[in-house]
Write a protein that binds this DNA or RNA. Sequence first.
RNA 1: GGCCCCAUAGUCAAGUGGCGAAGACACCAGCCUUUCAAGCUGGAGACGCGGGUUCAAUUCCCGCUGGGGUCACCA
Length: 475
Amino acid sequence: MSVRVRFAPSPTGYMHIGNARTALFNWLFARKLQGVFILRIEDTDMQRNVEDAIDVITAGLSWLGMDWDEGPGVDGEFEPYYQSQRLQLYRDHARQLIKNKQAYICRCHKSGDDDSECDCRLDMTDADAETDLDGGLAVRFLNPGGTTEFEDIVQGKLSFENEQFGDFILIKSDGTPTYNYANVVDDHAMQITHVARGDDHVSNTPRQLMLYEAFGFEPPEFAHLPQIMAPDGGRMSKRHGASSLNELQERGFLPEAAMNYLALLGWSPGDEREYLSPEELISEFDLQRVSKSPAQFNMKRLIHINSLHMENTPLERRARLAAGILVDRGLLNQADVEQPRVMDRVAAVVEALGTRFKYGEQILEYGEHFFSDAPPEIDSELYSYLEERQVRGALREAGERLSGLSDWSLEAIEEVVRGTAEEHGLKAAPLIHAIRVSLSGSTVGPGLFTLVHLVGQDQSYRRIQAALDTVPAQD
RNA sequence: GGCCCCAUAGUCAAGUGGCGAAGACACCAGCCUUUCAAGCUGGAGACGCGGGUUCAAUUCCCGCUGGGGUCACCA
C-alpha cells in the first residue's frame, strides 16, 4: 500500500515558515516514496475570510514548488477536504462512541479555565446516544486511563499517563469537533499512513491514540518535527522579519532556494552537501535523519543558499526577479516591464551586478540609481572622495571628455578615465572613486567602466556636474 | 509548577566507546582588484556541568543546569 500523508493547516491568513517546512517534509516524504500528498484545511473554528486565507496557503505551497494530489482544487476520493464540510461525519462517529459508552454528553457547561471536575460522566444514560449533536451540548471522551506508548519516527519511544488528559472534549457545544478529535476521524477516513507535524503536537498524540484505540482504528505512524526558532532563540514571530513564506517571496528569494534552505533546517543529507535541487531533496530526504533539536532561522545562511542557486539561474530569470522587486517598490511600473527595452536594461544591470546580486531585494542596494533619472544623493560621508582640487579638475575634464565621446564602448570609457587621471598627475583609483560616487552615490558596485557605460553618456555627464555642484572643494 | 523532549563553535550541522571532532554561514588576516561581491590562501572558534560504567568516554547511565514544547468547548 502506498504512503499517504497530509498537510493540515488552519487558515489563519499567514503561512508561517515552520508550517511551510512541515508541509515540505510531508511533500518530500510522499514524493520520495511515490505516495500521496494531501492538503486538508482545518477550518472548524474559523469564520469569514476563509477563502482568502486558504489562498495564502495554496499560493505559498505552489510558490515553493509543492503540489498536492488531493485537496482544494484537486478533489479526490476522500473529499471534501475542508473540515467545515465534514461535520456530519464527526457527529456520526461521536454517536458511535457514545453508544459504546466511550464518550458521553456533557451538560454542565464548564469552561476551560474552570478546573473543577466535570461529573457528567456519572450521568451517562442510554438516551444519550439519541441526543442531537448539532449544537447546545458538548461531548466528552471517557478517558480509559492507563498508559499510552508509541514509537515516534524522529522522537523515538514516548510514553504518557492517560489520566493527565482527563475527559477531553470531542464535540464542542456549538456542534463543531475539536482538533484532536477531527484529526483522528479525518486521518482515518483519508487513510493517512504517516503524520509528520510540528513537535508542539507531541502531547496531542496520546489523546489521539486513545481515540484510535476506542474506535478500533489502526493509528498512523507519527513523526514530530523540531521547531524552527527565531534568530534570537525565541519563537518565530512577525517582528523577526521573514517569518512567513510570503515575505521570502516578496524579498526576492528563489523558491527552490527557499525550499533548499527550509529542508536544511532540522534535516541534513548526512554529508557535507548543502546545495540541493528539489529533485535531489526528494531523492535524499529521509524522515529518520530529521534532528530532534530545534533549529534557528538564519537569514545570512538563507542568502548564501540563495546565492548558490542564483549562480545557476539564467540571466533572464534573474532579471525578472529584479524587475518584480522594482515594480513592487515603485521604481518601475508594470507597463514598463512589458517593454523589451526596459527588460533589456534590467537584464544589463543584473548582469553587471553578477555575484553581487544574491537575492532580489539587493537590486535596490546596488541598482536603485540605474532606474532613476535624478542624480543620486551623495551622503556627506562620501564627500571626501570629491573634495580635492586635483581630483575635481580631473573629474570635470573626464565628464566633459566622456560626453564628447563618439564611441560609447567600455574600452573608450576606460581610455578616457585612465588618460585623464594620468594627465592630471593622478593614479586612476582616486578618479575612479570620484566618478563612482558621482554616478551612483555609493562606493560599491560593478566595475567602474561598466557602471559608466550603463549609466549612459548623457546621465554620466549630468551626474558628474551635479556632484561637483553639490560637494564643495576642500584644500 | 506537572508532563514530554532537546543539548557538538555565534548559527546550521556530520560523527564515533579510542579521531588531529568533518563541512557550511558568519567572523578575522592576506592575495587578487578601481570599490564591493566572487575566488584563492591562512586564522580564531565546539562536544554545558558533576558523578558514574569502562583499559578508554563527546559517544552509555544518573543528577544538575540551560533551552524548547504542552497543559482549552484553539488548532
